[in-house]
Design a protein around this nucleic acid. Sequence first.
RNA 1: CGAGGCGUAGCGCAGUUUGGUAGCGCGCUUGGUUCGGGACCAAGAGGUCGUGGGUUCAAAUCCCGUCGCCUCGACCA
Length: 476
Amino acid sequence: MAKDQFVSQIADIETDFPQWYTDVVVKTKLVDYGPVKGTMVIRPYGYAIWENVQRELDARFKQTGVENAYFPLFIPMSFMTKEAEHVEGFAPEVAVVTHAGGAKLDEPLVVRPTSETIIGHMMGKWVESWRDLPLRMNQWCNVVRWEKTTRPFLRTSEFLWQEGHSVFATGEEAEAETLNMLRLYEEFAHSVLCMPVLTGRKTEKEKFAGAVATYGMEAMMHDGKSLQSGTTHYMGQNFAKAFGVQFTGKDGALQHGYTMSYGVSTRLIGALIMTHGDARGLVLPPPVAPVQVVIVPIASKKEGVLEACNALADRLKKAGVRVKLDDSDNSPGWKFNEWEMKGVPLRIELGPRDIESGKMTVFRRDTLEKQDCYLLADAEKAVEELLRQICEDLYARAETRMRERIVNADTLDELLKEVDGGNFVRAGWCGCRECEDKVKEFAQATARVIDKENTAKKCVVCGKPSLHTVFFARAY
RNA sequence: CGAGGCGUAGCGCAGUUUGGUAGCGCGCUUGGUUCGGGACCAAGAGGUCGUGGGUUCAAAUCCCGUCGCCUCGACCA
């Protein structure tokens, strides 16, 4: 009876995936809805995940020599219009401030939807000589995009992200950086989020407004839909020309720099929820889990139980584990379900029986297996080993699922059938916009990324020779 | 912006067809018994029924207006 009530708190992942997702992010107290439509309030438990993402990613950026900086939230409207494609791409979704200080502003201010323009403006001032290059910066901030429909983490009117912006003396360097950052994201997704991704170049249609080339990282969700989880853009000289980013080269000639940018957002949290989650709720990868180990005391009023739990918690804390001792007076069963729903990777139950035998009962969230073979004396080692194993298994499971659900198609009908079945479809493409639009119209699927090799022979639409082999999927 | 649905206690809902004392579950508060998979008992607090007008002896319920939210279609990290 009580069990049924718990299960019913979260929709069925198999039959009602969108509802399941909403339940998970709200009921596990990751987020709440904000008073302004389309905004979300990230609660402490959800924000702790983001902090872990930030820490891990920031460390990687710094290793490659990228420095953090901060640029203003407000961008003069005139900046936005300097790059033609850029303004066209973002105009429909920018929020504009027209009044401030009790008066109408001479020039409206755009609330940044992304910072290429204002950073381009500053780069124009900062870059004078080849000695100033490369200039590689990143900022952690919020951006606003007035989307028509929203969903927590996946698409909100305001979201948190990281945007890196760099300028180089040559196009080759900027392009290389674009690919390096894509690889960095892929490695990060693998080792921190335990999430397999497809990476590759985007088609012209899916390209960033104002870019020469866009590369993307796509993750496969439980329902077979794709989620763009990160992008890198090579801008060529487009923004450098628009904002006068010029330098004097070694040869004394004045020339424009080459810029690139890259970003990932709080959408990553949505991606990992939908990659690893199950019928009981969240399953968090240990590197980003706010709580990696929860200790649940059993018969906590019995002598010695709480003391033993506290001692274990202290030891694990010293070993660098994010550990929580749940000494609230809820019943153990309640705690089990609560922390499982919240995705804590590992639970240790400690009661009189365990203490007497010198062992601890350990429960793995990802496999739902309970084991009592671990010695209390070796707790640090056991926990470290288990968390590492969970990472590996989470990745392997998601990777297998993705691999099994990437299929080839030679015709539009096949493509539609496979996409309907929740698959990604690998198919040939002649390279023209009409055929790409046809796929969207016929199967509601879009070109996610272009495969590294062109192995298909014919375009899935028109039958002409294939220019690229493309991964098609429905997308969030 | 096109189509559909919903606004009643903190949350989830019933009540509306056929007007007649404002209800249920969960949660919350207090006390007690519990504790190895969402425990139980007892007592208690909590609502201008989204909002404005109208009909009526009487409106959550009927009529007109209005606001807000959710889902699905065109854009996006």
